[in-house]
Amino acid sequence: MKVVFLLMPRLHLLDLSGPAQVFSTADDLGCPYQLHYVAEQEDVVTAQGVRLRAETVWPVTGPDDLVVVPGWRSPMLKGGPRPSRETLGRLVAHHAGGGTVASVCSGADLLGQAGLLDGRRSTTHHELQDELAERYPRTRVERDVVYVVDGRVVTSAGIASGIDLALHLVAGQHGPAAAARVARSMVVYARRSGEESQDSAMLRHRWHLRDAVHRAQDRIDASFAEPLRLAELARGCGVSERTLTRQFVESTGLTPLRYQQTLRLERAEHMIGHGATVDAAARAVGFADARMLRRLRSRAA
């Protein structure tokens, strides 16, 4: 998957480096990404004074690829960068061809200039939301959210929210366990948008920084349908069974077994929602029969 960053003058370094680090780390962990940096001129001066060198020729992109527009320093959107028709046309053509476009902070203004926000929900930095709504009245600006996904147009609030946006996209492409591994490697919280509930237990219970518990979760995530042997799990994490259980509960509110059951239940519900019988779903997620699954479903109801 290609990730193409479109760089504008006076861009914020973290708007760029946050998402770039997510995709780069994902690539290091076996989720393949190719990162490209394009601009209308080779030298791009950032808001923090660092000069970046970009390509002026765009790579060929397809439906599986992503174009990201980092934001720039500006007290207002008015007076910000005004890219050429060719650049805006690139954004439009990529989206029309089935690709995804995303923005961080004021980068939403470029998507607005390209007409990609029309008829869609969007967001940006809280200091720019009113102006975004005024400049592009055909978009519905969502407030107090980290990012908004509307089809293949993704906008985020500002600065560090680009990390959350990128983690969400990695989760969509490679699964929540992969996104959680990336977040752990970067020592950041794996989190989702403030506009929606955490729809994956693999991400929902990662709001902690305990390494042993993260390692235990990684192992359970990868094989939650297999029998859970606490002694082996603790040994693999380098702690005692008692210590692992205590830290796991303190970090997630669940025992390792209950966490495994939560993953099994979540997967089973997904399968049942797509036409599987309760018996078939129970077997697929590791239950010996459907009785335990039925009990867990009744508790969650």
Rank of each mutant, 00 (worst) to 15 (best):
R73H: 12
A114C: 01
A102W: 02
V57T: 14
P81H: 11
W72M: 06
A26P: 11
L116S: 03
A102C: 04
G107M: 14
P32A: 12
L77Y: 01
A26V: 14
P70R: 10
T25N: 06
V68Q: 00
G97E: 03
W72N: 03
P63M: 03
A108T: 01
Q113I: 05
A39V: 03
K78V: 14
A96G: 05
H94W: 02
P75E: 12
S17K: 09
L66K: 07
A102H: 05
G97M: 01
A20Y: 05
G89S: 04
G99D: 07
A96I: 00
L110G: 04
D109T: 01
S74L: 04
P70C: 12
L111E: 02
T61G: 08
V50D: 01
E55S: 15
G115Q: 06
V92S: 14
A102L: 02
L117K: 09
L88G: 06
D109F: 05
V38E: 02
D43R: 13
T25A: 12
V101H: 03
K78I: 10
V50E: 11
G79A: 11
A93N: 11
V38P: 02
L35G: 07
D27F: 08
A114S: 00
S106P: 03
D28V: 15
V104R: 11
T25D: 05
P81I: 06
Q34W: 01
A47V: 11
F23S: 12
S74C: 10
L117N: 06
E40C: 08
L66E: 06
P81L: 03
E55W: 08
W58D: 12
V69W: 01
F23W: 08
Y33P: 00
Y33F: 15
L117V: 04
G71C: 07
L66G: 02
R85I: 08
S84E: 14
L52P: 01
L88Q: 09
G97N: 08
S17Y: 09
C105H: 07
E40Q: 14
V104N: 12
G62F: 02
D65R: 04
G115C: 09
D27Q: 14
W58F: 13
A114M: 00
V38C: 15
P75V: 02
W72C: 11
G71T: 07
P81S: 12
H36K: 05
L77T: 03
L66Q: 04
D64R: 13
G89H: 07
R51C: 07
G79F: 10
P63V: 10
G49S: 05
T46G: 14
S24P: 00
P32V: 12
G30K: 12
E55G: 05
P19F: 00
Q34M: 12
C31G: 04
G89K: 10
H94M: 04
C31Y: 15
D65H: 03
A108I: 00
V104P: 05
L52E: 02
P81R: 10
L110I: 15
R53C: 08
R53T: 13
R51P: 00
